[in-house]
Nucleic acid binder design. Structure first.
Length: 476
RNA sequence: UGAGGUGUAGCGCAGUUUGGUAGCGCGCUUGGUUAGGGACCAAGAGGUCGCGUGUUCAAGUCACGUCACCUCAACCA
């Protein structure tokens, strides 16, 4: 018991020191380790398995929507980056540049992709000739590099894994619609797969992607009330099409520029999941992405028949499509309980001589930390039902917390009070950059997304009529 | 880039004030006993005290320099 307390105390207090709690959890649960180059992280097998599950689930949605996977080069000629003026301005400070290769200085420096709009735009310019080639809808799973000044595992690292989707359409309407559709796809993914509620909406001019006409984002609320941008979609208009000559001959025989859009989510989603669902014991993983959904802990495992019964249960769960595992290590049961709880496994099954005798299994739910008993008969169906219930409960819990912590403000003081209390603050905004900047200076909060409808009367800063109702929050 | 802090075993730390044989807890290895919430006993392995220069009979400890990391600020689809 004393030992347990000592161990648990190694994880920072989630209420008192949330950033430290986060760091403790990602390191101690062996999700990641720090890389030798500053700002990089090594994703360990347990962390990578979460990413694989995210990839698989999201890929299925993309395929169903008609998006195809492709791959483009890591290195981009510097000249590509400079073709779109705003784009280069936005990314220049954080690109890594390759100046030497093959033992000699390169004629033209190459940038390590911070995002692939330019190189994909370049290729699309070659591939698109006719209206029959459109729409062209591609996605790639890859790594990108952005040389950030301060980093934190998953939330902001110099190199990270993501998917970036890029599409060209013949008309502005279609491209804009796709931008909003993809935002909705992300929102549903957050809900159904990550059990995570998000706020979605259009970004302000100040916050939009470098080179975009419009950016939409989804923002998740972390335990401390700060916001984490967890996915974005961008409508580019013809900005990139013109920079990269993405032209096609339309039905009417006229040569026209296409309309492009892009969208992406990254390993940051893992950080969002950790910070949304985690508790004082460590991770709480949504069942759809948990590498192990049900761990079986044998009790008195050296006793005749115990381990065999565990294996049998494991096999039947796997048969039913549950990611199950038996922990037959030499550690004591208590040690295993704590270890797997810290690692966020949704369901733990304890199986000992007593259970086997009674034809039951002891079942522990990670989301509510409660133990119960279920009959061993029909265990796979029961566990599957439990996993679904856990997922639904995790979403409800997080959604309720978010709802409770969205407040409105009429004045800057109220806004400051709101974000200080760990809330998202819904407030009116006149639409000018000066007022947006004042909020940042006064309350260290930024406009996360704009609500679909303007429901506020006046701008929270200057008092002029409100043009957009904005969700302000402190952000990671 | 500004301010502050920390570098001692895999992890967490004590030791630095006042220079004198390198320590503790956890983890790890081996053997045994255990097992329903981080078990116990015994025996082990593991360190150029971030790096460099200097002072000294003697430096983890003092001085100067340097590097790395952390926190806050700034920066940041």
């Amino acid at each position: 018991m004393a030992k347990n307390e000592q161990f648990v105390s190694q994880i920072a207090d989630i209420e008192a020191d949330f950033p430290q709690w986060y760091t403790d959890v990602v390191i101690k649960t062996k999700l990641v380790d720090y890389g030798p180059v500053k700002g990089t992280m090594v994703i360990r097998p347990y962390g990578y398995a979460i990413w694989e599950n995210i990839q698989r689930e999201m890929d299925a949605l993309f395929k169903a929507a008609g998006v195809e996977n492709a791959y483009f080069p890591l290195l981009i000629p510097m000249s590509f980056m400079t073709k779109e003026a705003e784009h280069v301005e936005g990314f220049a400070p954080e690109v890594a540049v390759v100046t030497h290769a093959g033992g000699a200085k390169l004629e033209e420096p190459l940038v390590v992709r911070p995002t692939s709009e330019t190189i994909i735009g370049h290729m699309m310019g070659k591939w698109v000739e006719s209206w029959r080639d459109l729409p062209l809808r591609l996605n790639q799973w890859c790594n990108v590099m952005r040389w950030e000044k301060t980093t934190r595992p998953f939330l902001r690292t110099s190199e990270f894994l993501w998917q970036e989707g890029h599409s060209v359409y013949a008309s502005a309407e279609e491209a804009e619609r796709e931008t909003e559709n993809m935002l909705r796809l992300y929102e549903n993914f957050a809900k159904d797969v990550l059990c995570m509620p998000v706020l979605t909406g259009k970004k302000t001019e100040k916050e939009k992607f470098a080179g975009a006409v419009a950016t939409y984002g989804m923002e998740a609320m972390m335990h401390d009330g700060k916001s984490l941008q967890s996915g974005t979609t961008h409508y580019m208009g013809q900005n990139f099409a013109k920079a990269f000559n993405v032209q096609f001959t339309d039905r009417d025989g006229a040569l026209k520029y296409g309309y492009t859009m892009s969208y992406g989510v990254s390993t940051r989603l893992i950080g969002a999941v950790i910070m949304t669902h985690g508790d004082q014991r460590g991770l709480v993983l949504p069942p759809p992405v948990a590498p192990v959904q049900a761990v079986i802990v044998p009790i008195a495992q050296k006793k005749e028949g115990v381990l065999a019964a565990c294996r049998e249960l494991e096999a039947s769960l796997k048969e039913a499509g549950v990611r199950a595992a038996v922990d037959d290590s030499d550690n004591s049961p208590g040690w295993k309980f704590n270890e797997w709880e810290m690692k966020g496994v949704p369901v733990r099954i304890e199986l000992g001589p007593r259970d086997i005798e009674n034809g039951v299994m002891t079942v522990f739910r990670r989301d509510v930390c409660e133990k119960g008993e279920l009959p061993l008969e029909d265990a796979p169906e029961a566990v599957k039902g439990l996993l679904a219930e856990i997922g639904a409960n995790m979403y409800e819990k997080a959604a309720k917390r978010m709802q409770e912590r969205v407040v409105t403000a009429e004045t800057l003081e109220e806004l400051l009070g709101g974000v200080n209390g760990g809330n998202f603050v819904k407030a009116g905004w006149c639409g000018c950059r000066e007022c947006e900047d004042k909020v940042k200076t006064f309350a260290q909060a930024t406009a996360r997304v704009m609500a679909d409808e303007n429901t506020a009367q006046n701008c929270v800063v200057c008092g002029k009529p409100s043009v957009h109702t904005v969700f302000f929050a402190r952000a990671y």
